[in-house]
Amino acid sequence: MKLGRREFVKLTAAATAVTAFGGLGFDLAPTKAHAQLMSLRKGKETTSVCCYCSVGCGLIVTTDEKTGRAINIEGDPDHPISEGALCAKGAATFQLAENPQRITKPRYRAAGSDKWEEKSWDWMLNEIAKRVKKVRDASFTEKNAKGEIVNRTEGLASVGSAAMDNEECWIYQAFLRSLGLTYIEHQARI
């Protein structure tokens, strides 16, 4: 990726800061911000766009190349709409990514069960595919009550999602329509 004419200052002077305080014989408190700055120098920077409202503010994401995890997410000063600014939500994006409460494994809830069970992706997708086929085959309607051709699947419906990228939205709707779904809706309707 190209950062273009971005004016975001490269963090090359960090060592100076350390020396300044180090020379005086004490550390900054809290020390975390300082330590983070050091690792920021080593991080990979990528640009993104905020996932919350639809203003489309620019983000700079710094990723620790060793752990592959984000170490800092802040506004992109070069972005012409946001000019580096972020609201409470945008400024919290780091916690969306680096959040121990994210669900990181597929899970299944059986009929009548009171709990989730972790399953493999392969198992999940195979089971879903089988069910899609079963419902589609059973509910596929070539002609409606008037005898007009409709080629649709009556027993399946979908909602979602404005949280997906354009490319994902596009293949999702093509996938659903190829299955014959007509009940396709999402956030724009509510």
Binding site: V49, G56, V61, T62, G68, R102, T104, N166, E167, E168
Partner: peptide
């Protein structure tokens, strides 16, 4: 991938961190 804001700007985003754990992109 790209997202389009209300002003119809289609803006490309890049991947920073890798998907956490076994998570995957919707695509």
């Amino acid at each position: 991938g790209s997202i389009s804001n209300s002003g119809r700007w289609m803006q490309w985003r890049y991947a920073g961190p890798k998907p956490m754990g076994d998570t995957k992109p919707d695509g």
